[in-house]
Simulated assay, not measured.
Amino acid sequence: MIIRKATHTDIPSLVILMNNFRKFYQQESNTEEVKSFLKERMDKGNSVIFVAILEDKLVGYTQLFPSFSTIKLEKIWILNDLFISEKFRGLGVASQLLTRVLKFSQETHRHQVWLLTGNDNKSAQHLYRKIGFTNTKFKHYVYNF
Rank of each mutant, 00 (worst) to 15 (best):
M1Y: 00
I2R: 06
I3P: 01
R4W: 07
R4T: 13
T7K: 08
T7Q: 10
H8C: 04
T9D: 14
D10W: 08
I11V: 15
P12C: 01
L14Y: 10
L14W: 11
L14M: 09
L17Y: 03
L17C: 11
N20P: 00
N20G: 06
N20V: 08
F21E: 04
F21H: 15
F21M: 10
F21I: 12
R22V: 12
K23C: 08
K23N: 02
K23G: 02
F24V: 10
F24C: 00
F24D: 00
Y25H: 15
Y25Q: 15
Q27A: 13
E28W: 00
E28H: 02
S29W: 05
N30D: 15
E33N: 06
V34M: 05
S36R: 13
F37D: 07
F37M: 10
E40C: 01
R41H: 08
M42V: 09
G45M: 01
V48M: 04
V51M: 05
A52P: 03
I53D: 01
L54H: 00
E55D: 09
E55T: 05
E55M: 02
D56M: 10
K57F: 06
K57A: 01
L58C: 07
V59F: 06
V59A: 03
G60V: 03
Y61L: 08
T62C: 01
Q63F: 02
Q63E: 08
S67G: 14
F68E: 03
S69L: 03
T70E: 04
I71P: 05
E74V: 10
E74R: 12
I78L: 13
L79E: 05
L79N: 01
L79Q: 02
I84C: 01
I84S: 02
S85D: 02
E86G: 07
E86I: 05
E86Y: 05
K87P: 03
F88C: 03
F88M: 09
F88V: 03
R89D: 03
R89L: 00
G90R: 04
G92P: 00
V93P: 01
S95Y: 11
L97D: 12
L98F: 08
T99F: 09
R100W: 13
R100I: 03
V101K: 11
V101M: 04
L102R: 15
L102N: 11
L102C: 01
K103L: 09
F104S: 09
E107C: 15
T108F: 04
H109P: 04
R110N: 07
H111K: 09
V113Q: 00
V113L: 04
V113W: 11
L115C: 09
G118S: 14
S123C: 06
S123G: 05
A124T: 13
Q125V: 07
H126G: 06
L127Q: 12
R129D: 09
I131Y: 10
G132A: 14
G132H: 14
N135K: 13
N135H: 15
T136G: 14
K137P: 08
K137S: 13
F138G: 06
H140K: 11
Y141D: 09
Y141H: 11
V142E: 12
Y143N: 05
F145P: 10
